[in-house]
Write a protein that binds this DNA or RNA. Structure first.
Ligand SMILES: [Mn+2]
Ligand SMILES: [Mn+2]
Ligand SMILES: [Mn+2]
Ligand SMILES: [Mn+2]
Lengths: 222, 222
DNA sequence: AATATTTTTTAGTCTTATCTAAATTTATTT
DNA sequence: AAATAAATTTAGATAAGACTAAAAAATATT
């Protein structure tokens, strides 16, 4: 069994490792966990001694297979609980993260699989993030940032790069939800803002917003 | 916000205080929490400094109103989660306590009320223990121990004094569940064992078992 | 190549919650 | 009323996880 703190480190390192390919550095981890670099070094040593990650001083860390599989389990729990909170308790998508941060640490071999079944084996959490299954396999669709789409292309909003509450609330105000169809109508040369057309309206979003929307391209042949 | 440890102390002191009326003594708390008396003294001082209980050295402790209301909240959470685990995830009643011990410490003002509503505002947990409502009010029925019933009396099994897994499994083997009707057919003079009649069979239970079954008397006029 | 800056690690401290062993207080016997 | 036993508290230690300040290593700049 691993402590809450250990689990949080593994989870954060996993997501950082996913984003950048290189070894994950101390300061980044510290920032994501709102702690200090020295604390990170301490914990890194502990996790390294337990063979959950490999670590060369000053060279950053990389999860081992064991470390990765623990991180995936925590992520699975986090996302399933988020789904539960939204789908069954009718929370809004910007209200569930903090609660899931706590629920993800509940220890029980059977609990999460029973919850998964109860929820109908969902594939994505309320923010469009894929939920790893029992064996740690993701629903692997390659999503691209809306920023990388060209004029005329269409796709479906499937996930978010940024899931901060302030961004979630912005999307709420724009009435944008996961699974919306989106078409790129125009891209403003000056500031890279994007004119998009949803099922209901056509409006501009900033480059920063476009960057954080993950789209599943629609192949027009289907 | 209170730590898990603080919440566990308050909860245990509350239930002990309920059983015996006198101030709760150190050793009892230590035993219930599987810890040492010296640790209990330490924590007691901390809780006393926070005005959650009153404490005179060597004289045991008594919860303050604040302490009591926190204990009730924890109990409410514990029992609602147990209900969720049995009713929605289909756990058996002897499998839920350990998981609920963890879930009861999840912090969120809205979560437990939403869960309560989702579950249909249940009044009793799977072991027949009353679930305090939002304002800390119990469903107050006075239950009596089956041991105190007389020959010929009838009643309904509504709760257990002992909810240990070994007892719960015993009841499973006897096919006894909450809300069963029970009639006292005879009481053996020699060892106080009780011959009871349920809807399906008639059989003997030991005095010790009788002591731990809580019955709602059936007033025959209704 | 030498210097300056940034990143990371080490050293030492703190808090929370435990523990063991010893001292103290209260309760029970003789 | 002593003496003995039991319950409780104190004293001192330990472990996890965090922090600040200082040292060391790696990068970047002149
Ligand atoms: Mn989240
Ligand atoms: Mn999410
Ligand atoms: Mn329980
Ligand atoms: Mn219960």
């Amino acid at each position: 069994m691993y402590s809450q703190s250990e689990e949080n480190y593994l989870k954060v390192i996993f997501t950082l490792q996913k984003a950048e390919e290189a070894p994950v550095n101390t300061n980044l981890i510290a920032e994501k966990l709102s702690t200090k670099a020295s604390s990170v070094t301490d914990m890194i040593k502990k996790l390294s001694a337990k063979d959950l990650l490999s670590y060369k001083p000053y060279q950053g860390v990389k999860l081992t297979e064991t470390g990765r599989s623990i991180a995936l389990k925590v992520l699975r729990k986090h996302r399933l609980w988020e789904f539960f909170l939204v789908d069954k308790l009718h929370y809004k998508w910007d209200e569930v993260h903090e609660i899931a941060e706590q629920l993800e640490h509940v220890k029980s071999d059977s609990l999460i699989d029973k919850l998964d079944y109860f929820l109908g084996l969902p594939k994505y959490d309320p923010h469009g993030d894929p939920i790893p299954d029992k064996d740690g396999n993701f629903a692997g669709e390659e999503l691209i940032s809306l920023k990388n789409m060209e004029i005329g292309e269409r796709g479906i909003l499937k996930g978010l790069k940024d899931s901060s509450n302030v961004f979630l609330k912005y999307l709420d105000r724009k009435n944008m939800v996961i699974d919306d169809q989106i078409e790129v109508v125009d891209i403003e040369k000056f500031d890279q803002s994007v004119l998009i057309k949803t099922n209901w309206e056509t409006f501009y979003i900033s480059e920063q917003v476009a960057k954080n929307l993950l789209i599943k391209r629609m192949n027009d042949e289907l």
